[in-house]
Amino acid sequence: MTESREQNVTGVFELENVSVTYGSEVAIAGVSMHIPPRAVTALIGPSGCGKSTLLRCLNRMNDEIGSAKVRGRITLDGADIYAKEMDPVELRTRVGQVFQKPNPFPMTIYDNVAYGPRTQGTRRRSELDEVVERSLKRAALWGEVKKDLKKHAFELSGGQQQRLCIARALATQPEVVLMDEPASSLDPISTQQVEDTIAELKEYVTIVIVTHNMQQAARISDLTAFMLRESMEEPAQLVEVGETRVMFTNPGDKRTEAYITGRFG
């Protein structure tokens, strides 16, 4: 991927020496990485290594959770997202998130997807219809639900609910979608469907996905970042980041090799 191609494309994250502290405890220290646009970047590592924490830095959801403090510099398309004039609420319309467990709102399928656009002030029915249809199509759910958009979201299966949540995140037309182990609570078939959806999505958005499933990372990501917390006293660090293909066949760091060959974690 060359710099010139990236110029027209939005959804580029640049992390410089990012660290996160909770009170006096340093959770993550010194993470620097480049997240390319229109690609899937996977964050892998053993549980408790700060993957999800790092992910939540990217849409400032850490702001909502108690005492987290982020240092360093994170830019999205060149703009510092922790700068004073950056409004976290607006940032989140550009950086969507899909959570570990499917969490549709207790409303109809249509209202779930239309929630984001309505929040941004879209009221026209035709416009909403269009967004809902496009988002559901991109999330590969349209075919299954187009006849009953008025159905309550809770009537969908777990896998369908998760794809609904993806559609909901897409409806605000974000540049980036963050996914926090989006398939960990799903059965194998639903997981497959969600993975297929992700693969198609990178055509439109940048995707950053946290997963503890190595095969999943290998299957769907272009770039992989391996994080590790070597002991409870130390903060988590970024061990290495690189093209997934290379990393899984020829890891640069002993610890990465140990992890992906299943020797710990």
Partner: peptide, 20 residues
């Protein structure tokens, strides 16, 4: 989870409370 989902969609705290 529901609150976070709404906040992550760029809704304000009040809108999250009021609508979800």
């Amino acid at each position: 989870d529901l609150r976070q989902a709404s906040l992550a969609l760029g809704a304000t705290r009040w809108r999250t409370i009021y609508r979800v």
